[in-house]
Computed example of a mutant assay.
Amino acid sequence: MIVDTHLHLIYRDRLSYPWLANVPPLDADFTHAAYAREARRLGIVAALHMEVDVAEADIARETAMVEALAGEAGSLLVGAIAACRPEEPDFPAYLERVLADPFVCGFRRVLHVVPDDVSEGALFRENISRLAGTGLNFDLCVLPHQIGKAIALADLAPDVSFVLDHCGVPDIKGGGFDLWKGPVAEIARRPNVTVKLSGIPAYGADDWTLEDLKPYFGHVAACFGFERMVWGSDWPVCTLGGGLSTWIGATQALLSGVSLEDKRRVFSENAWRLWKIAPKA
C-alpha cells in the first residue's frame, strides 16, 4: 500500500501556470484520470495533491478544483497541500479560511523561485510560526545552498512540522553530493523536519541508473532514519526522469534491504500520521 505525498495535477483550461512556458515537456494537461490509471496498477491507494505554483490569483481556485476532483467516484485524492504567501500581511486571514476546510492538510511556498531573503523576513517567519498547533505542516522546497534558510525556519518554529521536499534537491547530474550532504545532515538534526523521498530521478542525467541514486538515498536514510521519511511521486515532474512506474521500481530497489516495517513507514504509515489523513472507506 503506497500513499503518494507529492502529486501535481495540471489543468490548463481551468488555472494559470506561468512557469510552464519555460518547461515545454510539462506544458500539457496532466489529469487525475491519467495519473490514477497508472498509479492503481502500482499499488498507490491514496494521494496528496501538492500545489503547482499557479498564478497567485488562482491559489484558492486550485484548492477548490482539487477538492472537487477528490469528491468524484474512485478518486485517489485524500487531501491537499495548498500554496500560500507567508510574506504577505493577509496570511493570517487566509490561514483562518483554510482551517475551516479539513481537506487542506499542509502548505508550501516554493522558496527557490523567489529571492533568498523572502524567507528571512520578519513577517514570513511570524506567519510560519502561526502554524503551530494547527495540524498543518509546511513543505520546504529549496536548493542545496538554501537549506541553511530552511534550517533557520525549523529552528524559529520548533512546534511546526516541516517536510524537506525532494531530499533537498541534490544536483545528481552535476555530481553535487559533497555540496549537498552537509546541509542535509544538519537539517536532519532538527526533530521537526521529515524528508520526502521524491523527485530525485529528474535531477539525474538522462541515462541515470540506480547506482547514481544510491548515495543520495543512503545519506538521507542515515541522517533521517525511516521514521522521518515519506514517499512522493512528484508526478508529472517524474516523467522527466523516466516516469511513475520507473520511480516506483527504483524506490523498491533502493528499499530492497530494508525491513518490511520500515518500508511500511516510508510508503504509507508516516504519511497517515504526519498529515493526519486516512484511506477512503
Results as ranks from 00 to 15, higher is better:
residue 183 P to K: 15
residue 93 A to F: 01
residue 146 Q to A: 14
residue 183 P to R: 10
residue 153 L to F: 12
residue 158 P to L: 10
residue 15 L to A: 00
residue 9 L to S: 00
residue 265 R to M: 10
residue 173 K to F: 05
residue 163 V to I: 15
residue 252 Q to E: 15
residue 88 E to A: 10
residue 125 R to I: 12
residue 269 E to V: 12
residue 226 F to R: 05
residue 46 A to K: 02
residue 41 R to L: 13
residue 149 K to I: 11
residue 135 G to Q: 14
residue 243 G to T: 01
residue 273 R to F: 08
residue 18 P to E: 04
residue 254 L to M: 12
residue 200 I to M: 12
residue 231 W to E: 03
residue 36 A to W: 07
residue 212 D to E: 06
residue 117 D to E: 14
residue 42 L to G: 02
residue 269 E to K: 10
residue 78 V to P: 05
residue 211 E to Y: 08
residue 47 A to H: 04
residue 61 R to P: 03
residue 156 L to K: 15
residue 141 C to V: 07
residue 194 T to M: 14
residue 13 D to H: 14
residue 217 F to P: 05
residue 137 N to V: 15
residue 192 N to S: 10
residue 254 L to N: 09
residue 225 G to N: 03
residue 132 A to R: 07
residue 173 K to R: 15
residue 123 L to H: 00
residue 53 D to N: 14
residue 95 L to G: 02
residue 259 S to M: 06
residue 209 T to M: 07
residue 180 W to C: 02
residue 240 L to I: 04
residue 192 N to K: 10
residue 4 D to I: 05
residue 259 S to R: 06
residue 173 K to A: 15
residue 140 L to D: 01
residue 85 R to H: 13
residue 63 T to D: 01
residue 179 L to P: 07
residue 238 C to R: 08
residue 264 R to P: 02
residue 178 D to C: 04
residue 138 F to T: 00
residue 207 D to W: 09
residue 48 L to V: 00
residue 134 T to F: 03
residue 157 A to W: 06
residue 18 P to M: 10
residue 10 I to A: 05
residue 4 D to V: 03
residue 75 S to L: 08
residue 211 E to D: 15
residue 218 G to Q: 11
residue 135 G to C: 12
residue 27 D to R: 04
residue 136 L to M: 09
residue 132 A to Q: 12
residue 104 V to E: 00
residue 267 F to I: 04
residue 241 G to M: 04
residue 11 Y to D: 13
residue 185 A to L: 09
residue 266 V to L: 15
residue 240 L to K: 05
residue 111 L to C: 11
residue 147 I to D: 09
residue 74 G to W: 13
residue 236 P to A: 06
residue 126 E to C: 13
residue 73 A to N: 11
residue 108 R to V: 00
